[in-house]
Design a protein around this nucleic acid. Structure first.
Lengths: 219, 219
DNA sequence: CCTCCTGCCTACTGACGAGTAAGGCTACGT
DNA sequence: ACGTAGCCTTACTCGTCAGTAGGCAGGAGG
């Protein structure tokens, strides 16, 4: 009977709620990632999820709610991956280094998540952008904290500390942009990316051009 | 008679084509900037432009065409502003400095243009993104050329030159991100932004934290 | 064996918005 | 005076979804 129904509908039927929710979210991420928020239809998501449309509304709410849920889940995963990668006991440069590596590794392994987070979500002027803006702010705050710690550890000068938040924003943006660039140059390793960016922001062009290089102290 | 008609419709009637086209493009940029591509309706654009909808179709074509035209116009303005700001006779650091200043000045003076270019256009997976991707590629190429010139002027090492394009992408991204950050911190001057970013990418955190600073050589 | 709860579906509605048909008005050339 | 070209409008069509109404099935508890 169960088998019969699977054949009739090509679907597994009568699964517990949390399993269905995960399936739906997975499908939603894929579809949003592929077509963007507006061009993604609930019908397609339901089809990919192997579930009928009313189920989505019953479990995850409106399209906007669904999108928000996707963003929250993927952003949380990303932030967790990055924070997990950081070694707090090391110096600031090594912390940044490991954070960048974790970031690029995550993007490499979850391209769809990244597309949803970066491309789709940033753009839509709607209420969901709140979700992303908040997550992005958390990322910037993370970097900012690192910069502030670094600056205060040594004798900080007032000018520099006022700029840390802006610098953090710039750094996050450069990493995002580099991740996007990566999508068109897949033959690069995540380690190379992290290394380039590290040299750029830690050493600067000035040093770089003169041959000075930053190299991770103990791999 | 003319006055009567203005009162009746609240509109100036019977204007030459190129004037109307400009009005329509201006309105489109404002509406796209405010609501994003998908949430912007042709009806609203026509209303803001003070023109009926069929005029838009007659002059600028479909919604997609219209959006493309907006992007092209605004992106061209931006690139022209930046290239006009660059002083080719100066050293590479000063060139970057002036380029950055011109960029932030433009963004400050044309926030709506910037929103359309950066937020809306990057996101939509549609065919118009081609327009933006192309323009962004031109911007990256511009920076890349500067880096390559700088690297080859001194003794370049192979590793570094392979990375220039990526670094250019990162730099462009950081400038974009900083411009976005600026929207939430309007009490900052464009000069400060340019200076911070310049210090970040030219000197790096390493130097910055030790008190070394980059300062424009002759203002 | 009944019944009720819950997972699940088919089949709709209703709105919104892109794009168009068809024609009116005016200025200018002849 | 009379076309004719080009500016401009009102008032539609029609497709596409988001969201919903209402009902079927299968298992648990009486």
């Amino acid at each position: 009977m169960d088998v019969e129904q699977r054949q009739r509908h090509g679907r597994v039927r009568r699964l517990p709620r949390d399993v269905r929710e995960r399936q739906i979210l997975d499908a939603a991420v894929r579809v949003f990632s592929a077509h963007g928020y507006h061009n993604a239809s609930m019908d397609e998501i339901s089809e990919v999820a192997g579930v009928s449309k009313p189920m989505i509304y019953a479990y995850l709410g409106s399209k906007e709610d669904l999108f928000g849920a996707c963003i929250r889940r993927e952003a949380t995963r990303l932030l967790e991956a990055v924070t997990a990668g950081i070694r707090v006991e090391l110096g600031p440069d090594m912390q940044l280094w490991h954070g960048l590596r974790a970031f690029f590794r995550f993007v490499g392994e979850h391209r769809e998540s990244w597309r949803v987070l970066h491309r789709q979500a940033t753009s839509q002027g709607g209420p969901f952008s709140d979700e992303v803006v908040a997550m992005r702010a958390r990322a910037i705050a993370l970097v900012d904290a690192l910069l502030v710690r670094t600056a205060t550890k040594r004798g900080l000068d007032e000018q520099a500390t006022r700029a840390t938040e802006a610098l953090a924003a710039a750094l996050v943006g450069s990493a995002e942009s580099l991740a996007d660039w990566w999508l068109d140059h897949p033959d690069i390793t995540d380690k190379m990316l992290a290394s380039w960016l590290m040299n750029l922001v830690w050493m600067g062009f000035g040093d770089l051009v003169e041959g000075t290089q930053w190299i991770p102290s103990a791999e």
